[in-house]
Design a protein around this nucleic acid. Structure first.
Lengths: 257, 257
DNA sequence: CACAAAATGTATATTGGGTACACAGTTAGC
DNA sequence: GCTAACTGTGTACCCAATATACATTTTGTG
């Protein structure tokens, strides 16, 4: 792999992402490319989970030898970075409809959540660095755009985007973790000890009333647990949007007052 | 390791956490214990990061052989679960001061953030299952208690706790990732290519005005980046609390109206 | 046009980490 | 004292990432 054109030294992987890694003209035409590798890795991750993504497996999927990947990708960590960026593919052509900032911002958050659900492995990725990938930044840019006519200053807009992203990412992660755990329990439960125990009865089993009075009450409330995870997620988004609305209101009053 | 007492089958690791894994009386007195192993693993993780925690290293730290750990801990994954629970040690004796729900809940969130900062590896942990650990649940219970006199119903209280937790966890994760990346760049920058590039100049380098107009403006704004990460975090907490306040207000009106 | 330089793909080997397994020594209770 | 239930350990195996050296292909240059 040739050195990056001499400029600001980018963190590993970012040079490729931003098109700053040049390939020489000599040598055989490459039968492989970073894009193909990333696509194969994403296919595997979508189908079998992130832990199924090994260099050997990706290479095999493409019909090449394991080591051939290293001619196009510096390390597995870099490959993961590229997968992250790949997951946000299409953010550049994203158009968000909506009359007011609130419905637009809500849609933006939902799109992000859907993206995470489409590629559940994203929430499992060990991220060594803040994701400064082109596609991610496109998506942030679209988020900022939803707040164009709110009168907020730029810093606050960015903070709002960060707030919603943090929450969305975290909720998706928990939901995916739970789904994985359920699937694992399912698989294990096929064994000697019968079917797995659902989460609720687990809590009922473990919580005693003295130590955890409030949780105990919630665990035993028959009305609980009727809300889907997605609705729980949306509930949280709406609370945050309430907070944003308050901020916008206050900002407007400050300005006119 | 003996089988768990016959009851509801718990996910791996939880039986130990909830004191349901019995040890026989015969045999030599154990020189090792799950607690000691977890403590050693946490020491290593605190000092050298989560990736430094290997079974070999933990065992060596304790002066035992690698395989001895497996007499007390079923797998590395279980050890990680136990570490997670260990990080929330002390939640049972937590007392949160404050006159109104808002200041109490704010304090609760800050305590959680401080806990995560004390053990940065928590945010790196691959969590295969929702954390149903005694200490974590204690902490949740304390969070619910801050909302005791708000008139909210239980389900909403739990959602609020989840919302704040999600945000806090996610923010801590990003902050730690960034810190790790900076440290890594520091180490790498000692090499041939000189000192590493700070995050801001990186963005200025990469963003072009046409594609990312809003981000471009923010990146080049001299007034930006003067706020500490902690203040950014608190800003988000306050937005969420605004949203919670709105919900409480609305709930009270619904009830009286 | 020959040939050196620059690439690509691959086989081999090393390293590191998790863990199955068998065995030796130890202790409680019959 | 005998035995079952333990504990700690050495050895072996497997998997995954990746350094290295090599054969092969292409290109630009003298």
């Amino acid at each position: 792999m040739p050195e990056a054109r001499e400029q600001v030294p980018l963190p590993p992987g970012l040079d490729l992402l931003w098109g700053r890694r040049e390939r020489g003209k000599r040598g055989p035409r490459a039968g492989l490319s970073a894009d193909a590798i990333v696509a194969a890795a994403m296919r595997i991750a979508d189908a079998k989970g992130l832990e199924a993504v090994s260099m050997e497996r990706v290479a095999h999927e493409l019909g090449f030898s394991t080591m051939s990947l290293y001619r196009h990708v510096a390390s597995k960590e870099e490959l993961l970075q590229l997968m992250w960026n790949g997951s946000a593919l299409g953010a550049e052509h994203l158009v968000i409809e909506g009359d007011d900032w609130r419905s637009r911002l809500r849609t933006w958050a939902i799109i992000q959540r859907d993206m995470l659900d489409r590629h559940p492995w994203i929430t499992q990725m060990p991220m060594a660095a803040p994701p400064v990938a082109p596609n991610s930044l496109h998506f942030v840019e679209r988020g900022l755009a939803t707040l164009d006519e709110t009168g907020l200053d730029d810093a606050d807009k960015l903070r709002i985007i960060g707030l919603l992203s943090s929450y969305t990412l975290s909720e998706a992660r928990m939901a995916h973790d739970a789904a994985r755990a359920a699937a694992a329990a399912q698989a294990a439960g096929d064994g000697p000890s019968g079917p797995p125990v659902p989460f609720d009865s687990l809590l009922r089993e473990l919580l005693d009333e003295q130590t955890y009075p409030r949780l105990y009450r919630i665990a035993w409330d028959p009305a609980a647990a009727t809300v889907s995870e997605r609705d729980e997620f949306l509930w949280g988004i709406d609370r945050i949007l309430d907070g944003v609305a308050a901020l916008i209101e206050r900002t407007r009053q400050d300005r006119s007052g």
